[in-house]
């Protein structure tokens, strides 16, 4: 699953949580909508969780975690591969 850059092993899953915020909340809200025939009055709890999560992400810097490609390029530059 991971990729090697020289002697260093990079696990892409490590960056997944940071780059995709509120994924679980969004999917649970969409599942609730699908179950209740797009009636979001019955999905108030999921909606509130999603809104709260989105509000919490507001102060986060844009490029908090760079992509795996960025790290591979950086390591390649350093090693001179």
């Amino acid at each position: 699953m991971g990729r090697k850059a020289g002697a260093l092993y990079i696990n892409p899953k490590k960056f997944g949580g940071v780059t995709k915020p509120c994924m679980i909340e969004m999917v649970s809200f969409l599942n609730c909508l699908a179950l209740n025939k797009q009636n979001d009055d019955k999905c108030v709890r999921q909606k509130d969780l999603l809104v709260a999560c989105a509000q919490a992400q507001k102060g986060r810097p844009k490029n908090a975690a760079k992509t795996i490609n960025y790290h591979l390029q950086r390591l390649a530059r350093d090693k001179g591969i």
Partner: peptide
């Protein structure tokens, strides 16, 4: 919202 919930598998 319907479109989003239909395509939730591509999230």
């Amino acid at each position: 919202h319907g479109l989003a919930s239909t395509n939730r598998s591509f999230a």
